[in-house]
Computed example of a mutant assay.
Amino acid sequence: MIQETIVTTQNSGGIAHIAPMGIHIQDDIFIILPFRPSTTLNNFLETRVGVINYCDDVRVFAGCLIGRRDWPLKPAQKISGQVLSCGLAHTEVELIRVEEDATRPKLFCKTVHTVNHAPFKGFNRAQFSVLEAAILISRLDMLPLSKIESEIEYLRIGLEKTAGERELEAWGWILAVLDDFKGKAVE
């Protein structure tokens, strides 16, 4: 199973990094696959700990992918790390093994501590649309532009039917990145 989460790490100097990541879960092990080069990868290798944050504010997912990474954090409870303040829950993890790969090494992590902060009330279609669009935007250099545009148009249907202010704000950020990308491709 893959869960869309926000992973927070920090380097040995205490500088935090926030990144959306689809993490794999096998039994009680979390597998994180950051691309190389990656601040998340560097921080995990340096400190061997991180935090998996479960969040329903899709602005964090979209924002991180477009460079908006200044989200409020608070100290983790059992590791030297940071927790996303708007998260519904978080799991503090420790790196136990690395499976090397030239493109995406696998980081195998075990749970150190888990906390629930607020109930998860479910995603509406707009939140799903923003999450999927954010993933598409993260792959602008990997997927054909026509595929991205057609999928964004399909996702717009759910967005327009169920979006609130947060979803509309995040959608606007995503479309701005797409428009910028298309503008640079024409130049």
Results as ranks from 00 to 15, higher is better:
F123V: 00
L88C: 07
E165Y: 09
T162C: 02
L88D: 07
E132C: 02
D70Y: 01
D57Y: 03
D56R: 12
R156H: 11
L131H: 01
Q77L: 13
C86L: 13
I148T: 05
G63M: 02
V93W: 09
H90Y: 15
K106Q: 14
E94K: 15
F123N: 11
A118Q: 14
E100A: 11
V130R: 03
Y154N: 09
F120I: 02
A126C: 04
C86I: 14
F128Y: 13
S80T: 12
L73A: 08
E100V: 00
R104P: 05
I52V: 15
E100H: 10
F61W: 09
A89P: 04
L159T: 05
G122T: 08
M142R: 15
A163D: 02
F120A: 08
D101C: 06
G81Q: 09
G158E: 06
K74V: 15
R69T: 14
C109Q: 05
R59N: 09
L65V: 12
S129P: 07
I148V: 12
I96R: 13
V115C: 10
E94L: 06
L73V: 00
A76F: 06
A76Y: 08
C86S: 15
D101N: 15
T114K: 13
L88F: 04
S80G: 12
A118E: 13
G87M: 09
E160Q: 15
H90L: 04
D57I: 01
K161N: 10
S138K: 03
L159G: 03
G158M: 07
E160D: 15
E165T: 13
R69H: 09
S138G: 13
I52Y: 03
I157Q: 13
R166C: 00
P119K: 06
V58C: 06
V60L: 09
Q77N: 11
E167S: 04
R69G: 12
P144A: 03
T114N: 01
S138N: 14
N53G: 06
I66H: 09
C86E: 15
Q82V: 02
Q82R: 14
K147A: 10
H113Q: 08
S85R: 15
I79Q: 11
E149I: 00
R125N: 12
G63Y: 03
E165N: 11
I148C: 02
P119W: 02
L140C: 07
E149K: 11
